[in-house]
Design a protein around this nucleic acid. Sequence first.
DNA 1: ACACCAACATTGGTGCGGCCAACGATAGCA
DNA 2: TGCTATCGTTGGCCGCACCAATGTTGGTGT
Lengths: 150, 150
Amino acid sequence: MTAEDTVPTRLRQAPSWLLGQASIHGHRLVTEHFASADARGYHYRLLAALQEFGPASQAALGRCTGVDRSDVVAALNELADKKFIERSPDPADRRRNIVTITSAGTDHLEHLTGVLTQIQDALLAPLSAAEREQLTHLLTRIVDHHTSRH
Amino acid sequence: MTAEDTVPTRLRQAPSWLLGQASIHGHRLVTEHFASADARGYHYRLLAALQEFGPASQAALGRCTGVDRSDVVAALNELADKKFIERSPDPADRRRNIVTITSAGTDHLEHLTGVLTQIQDALLAPLSAAEREQLTHLLTRIVDHHTSRH
DNA sequence: ACACCAACATTGGTGCGGCCAACGATAGCA
DNA sequence: TGCTATCGTTGGCCGCACCAATGTTGGTGT
């Protein structure tokens, strides 16, 4: 086999590749651990937003979590099935649903947050505390740049 | 709207979230720019491996690029349609296909590499050269940790 | 020589996550 | 009054990472 299990140099040097690979490992950790808790990424995003900002419309939830409107519907259906959120019509604007997190939902969110903390530790295992902060800072700047720039 | 377009703190602080978001922006850039060149990520990975390591079997290609065997088949079909690679049976091992990059394929790879360089620049725009190196280093360590650990 | 297991290419299917297009209903504004 | 925008919802698409099964072929142990 001419090609050992070595990543081609062209790839290994590209930040976009490294970013993608690192994010894949993170994503796998999240998926696996969340699956054990009968959850997935979208659930956490929505619950976190509801807990922090209080009851909100589905469109607002989608906007602040970066989840598409149509995907918000599906995720909220799943969360509603598990009694983690409740939908009620907005009396002030009959187009809107007001989404509220239940106490069971808050508990679930708290649990998932714990799980997520463990995940971060597994993901960043080879890095020191200072390096983790460095990485967070660099990534934040990239993300901010690409979101504020609309 | 109680929730403005602000990302919940719980998310904003999680490195896995930042990694995912940054990788999404990178991925979008790659997808868009590569689409203009009638290519996608898998194509580049495979062509890069072929160029660097020479003719190889599909299984070997999949292993060193991190692409699943079954997905290698599909991607190579696409590349073969465009005459960028050629499949020939391995006389020494009739289970194997020997995949070879054509000169058109090399040209295409070279072109895509140029495109990719531009992408890196757009992706890391807010970072200085030193910071880019820092980021690359940190990411490399994470990726290495999660791949060498099998 | 034989049985057995491992590796190969291929098919087909799953799931998540990020998208887009369209629809009917409603709100706000000209 | 219309025009436009927003909202929830349905349904679909694509990329990428996976898994399972199949038939073929190689290599090994006995």
